[in-house]
Amino acid sequence: MVGERGRAFVPGVLWVPAVLGLGLVALPVLGLVVRTDLGEFPEHVSSPGAVSALWLSVRTAGVATLLCLVLGGPLAVVLARVRGLRVVRALVLLPLVLPPVVGGLALLYLLGRSGLAGEVLDAAGIRVPYTTAAVVLAQTFVAMPFLVVGLEGALRTAGARYEAVAATLGARPWTVFRRVTVPLVLPALGSALVLCFARALGEFGATITFAGSLQGVTRTLPLEVYLLGETDVDAAVSVSLLLVVVAVAVVALVKPRTQ
Results as ranks from 00 to 15, higher is better:
residue 1 M to P: 10
residue 3 G to V: 14
residue 6 G to S: 12
residue 7 R to S: 11
residue 9 F to T: 14
residue 13 V to W: 15
residue 24 L to E: 09
residue 26 A to N: 04
residue 27 L to H: 09
residue 28 P to Y: 04
residue 35 R to D: 13
residue 39 G to Y: 07
residue 40 E to Q: 14
residue 40 E to H: 11
residue 42 P to Y: 03
residue 44 H to G: 01
residue 50 A to G: 03
residue 51 V to M: 14
residue 65 T to P: 04
residue 70 V to Q: 08
residue 74 P to Q: 05
residue 76 A to W: 11
residue 77 V to F: 03
residue 80 A to Y: 11
residue 85 L to S: 00
residue 86 R to F: 06
residue 88 V to A: 15
residue 92 V to W: 06
residue 97 V to I: 09
residue 98 L to C: 14
residue 106 A to W: 06
residue 112 G to V: 01
residue 129 P to S: 06
residue 132 T to A: 01
residue 135 V to D: 00
residue 139 Q to F: 06
residue 140 T to Q: 02
residue 142 V to F: 03
residue 142 V to S: 01
residue 158 A to R: 13
residue 177 F to T: 11
residue 182 V to W: 14
residue 184 L to V: 01
residue 187 P to H: 11
residue 192 A to G: 08
residue 193 L to R: 12
residue 195 L to E: 10
residue 204 F to K: 00
residue 205 G to V: 03
residue 210 F to V: 00
residue 210 F to Y: 02
residue 215 Q to S: 13
residue 218 T to E: 05
residue 221 L to C: 00
residue 224 E to S: 07
residue 230 E to C: 03
residue 236 A to P: 03
residue 240 S to R: 04
residue 243 L to W: 07
residue 244 V to M: 07
residue 246 V to T: 09
residue 248 V to E: 03
residue 248 V to H: 02
residue 249 A to R: 09
residue 251 V to A: 08
